[in-house]
Amino acid sequence: MGSFPGHVLPGTLFFVVGMWHIWCSIVRYVSDPKSFRVRVWNPVSGFEGRFKYLELYVIAVGGFIDLCIEFLYSTHLKIFVHGVLNPSHMNNFEHSGMLLMFFIFGVITLLSEKTRYLPLPEGALCLIASAAFTAEYLLFYFHSTTHKGLEGYYHFILVVLIGLCILSTIAGTLMPTSFPVDLCSGIAIALQGLWFYQTAFTLYGSMIPDGCRRRESEVTCHSTEHEIRGELLANFQLFVSVFGVLVFVSGACIYNEQRFRHSNITNAEE
């Protein structure tokens, strides 16, 4: 997604969903460890159930909006040229395919949870989610847009994070009672969202490393030393992202442990 908005929009979706998944996973485990089960999505409690399926709507609607931007707006409706797909917008078509998979996941999960027409177990939903992440992985690995140099390094890290999302969702099917697996899934999704943001600000925003610049459709560096310095900066940015997410995880664990412990003590006294 060779633009600043093209990275920020999916980054926002992944980050919000990932952080929500982390929080809900910790809450469910701390409140009742014995009955803990892996969930591919988490309902919003309270509000008389009006926002129960908010996460799924965010995935489906957000994916659909981004799909329309990539397939319709970015291509200026010039989809076919001389009877074939417009070669100038192949990257937009590829992104559309990825977003279509997440849209399908959101719709199928909504049908499974809200209707009787498509009842699926949680393990099957995990496999559908892993299929969406796999489509995303293949997109960035076999991208028609050749990523070289510093830009290629940022996208390589993104591919690694997507791979972690695939592994954690598949593991959720194989180990449906594992808290670490469920937590790792949320962490991987949140990190993917953060890395979309980092890529947007570094390659398409104001944080581009010294000695490098964006020229037309690619990032170029003045020398190999500047490119290596940019890659080292990327490593540090990844470390900061991982550290920040783990701080949130630790804080959420401590907060919910104290909250539910206090609640249990109060109930016991009553």
Rank of each mutant, 00 (worst) to 15 (best):
I162W: 00
C221F: 04
M90N: 09
E122A: 13
S223E: 13
I189P: 02
K148G: 06
S31W: 06
R229W: 11
L191M: 07
S241D: 01
L72C: 13
G49A: 08
F156M: 12
K148C: 07
K34H: 15
S217W: 09
A124Y: 08
L125W: 03
L100E: 07
C165P: 03
A190F: 02
A200D: 01
L161G: 03
S241G: 13
E269Y: 08
A129P: 02
T75G: 06
N86E: 04
C165W: 03
V245D: 01
A135D: 07
R50A: 15
L194Q: 03
N42K: 14
S206D: 09
Y197L: 09
R261Y: 12
Q198P: 00
G251A: 08
M98P: 04
F140R: 07
C221R: 02
E225V: 14
Y73C: 09
P121C: 15
G49R: 07
S250T: 12
A268E: 15
E270W: 12
L127S: 08
Q192D: 05
T12M: 11
G62I: 04
F71N: 01
Y57E: 10
S88D: 11
V242Q: 05
L110H: 02
N42V: 09
L194V: 05
P33T: 14
W23P: 00
W41K: 01
E55A: 07
G172V: 00
F142L: 11
A190I: 00
G152W: 03
T169G: 03
M90W: 10
F239A: 15
V107P: 01
A171L: 14
E269R: 13
L118A: 14
N256A: 12
Q192W: 02
W23Y: 15
C253A: 10
S178V: 08
F248A: 11
A129F: 08
L203K: 01
C184N: 08
S168C: 03
I108S: 09
V61F: 15
T173M: 09
W20G: 09
F248C: 11
F243S: 08
S263I: 10
M98T: 15
E48Y: 10
P43Q: 07
Y141H: 13
A135R: 05
E269K: 15
L232A: 14
P209C: 12
Y53N: 13
Y73N: 12
I187P: 00
T145N: 05
W23C: 08
D210L: 13
E151I: 05
L9W: 04
F196W: 07
I254V: 12
C212N: 03
E136M: 13
E270H: 15
S263H: 11
V219E: 03
E227W: 08
E225N: 11
P5I: 06
V16L: 13
A171H: 02
H95C: 10
G62E: 00
I166L: 05
Y141N: 15
G211C: 10
D32T: 09
E122K: 10
P119D: 09
T12R: 01
L246R: 10
E70G: 03
P119I: 09
V81L: 12
V44H: 05
L194I: 04
L127I: 12
G18Q: 02
R261H: 12
I104Q: 06
A171R: 02
R116S: 11
H89L: 03
W23V: 07
I128H: 06
S45A: 14
A190W: 04
P176M: 05
V58C: 13
I189M: 08
Y197C: 01
G230H: 00
H82D: 14
W20F: 13
S74H: 10
M19F: 05
N92G: 01
V160H: 04
T145V: 12
